[in-house]
């Protein structure tokens, strides 16, 4: 590589990093802001200390590499008959490293027919997307997947 082009590349990289910095700093720091909430506290608030089991019944679909963190499609499907006695009560979606980890709490009813939720979330950095599912019997199931983010979505 020629020295000139190398330096130019370096300059561009520096310029890019200065632009990105506010968002990156925000994502890397400890949670702050009006709705800051850590993942442990969020899970604790929902389960009330009950055990959470990682279950193959919960299917979490999210891209492994997201080019743009501002729009990351997430789909959660849970195997359940969805009858009056046995149904999925709630699906909670968390982004474990966002400043507010909570994305959505979804309360389902047997009228849904199938337990599924698809939405789009913002991710600040590469992190795990975690799903916590509450069944009508009071069990808590979970699933998580790592998503690599090329450009952060906050900032």
């Amino acid at each position: 590589m020629q020295r000139r082009s190398f330096l130019r590349g370096l300059g561009l990289a520096a310029a890019a990093s200065t632009v990105v910095v506010p968002g990156m700093v925000m994502a890397a720091e400890a949670p702050k802001g009006p709705n800051a909430f850590s993942i442990d506290a969020a899970v604790q608030a929902i389960t009330g200390g009950k055990p959470v089991v990682a279950s193959p019944k919960v299917h979490l679909k999210a891209p492994q590499i997201a080019e743009n963190g501002a729009v990351v499609p997430v789909t959660v499907e849970v195997d359940s008959p969805m009858t009056d006695d046995d149904y999925i009560k709630a699906i909670h979606i968390f982004a474990t490293k966002n400043s507010n980890v909570r994305c959505a709490d979804v309360m389902l009813t047997p009228a849904n027919g199938k337990a599924m939720l698809a939405t789009r979330v913002k991710l600040g950095t590469s992190q795990d997307v975690m799903v916590l599912v509450e069944t009508s019997k009071g069990e808590f199931l979970s699933a998580s997947q790592n998503v690599k983010v090329t450009i952060g979505g906050c900032g």
Binding site: N35, A70, V71, V72, T75, A95, N98, N100, V101, R102, C103, A104, D105, V106, M107, L108, T109, A111, N112, G113, K114, A115, M116, L117, A118, T119, R120, V121, K122, G153
Partner: peptide, 20 residues
């Protein structure tokens, strides 16, 4: 049918898909 509580971590112009 379904009630949701959401926070700012959802994307701009969000989409919610459920079965019914």
């Amino acid at each position: 049918i379904t009630t949701m509580k959401t926070w700012e971590s959802l994307s701009t112009n969000p989409v919610f898909t459920i079965y019914f």
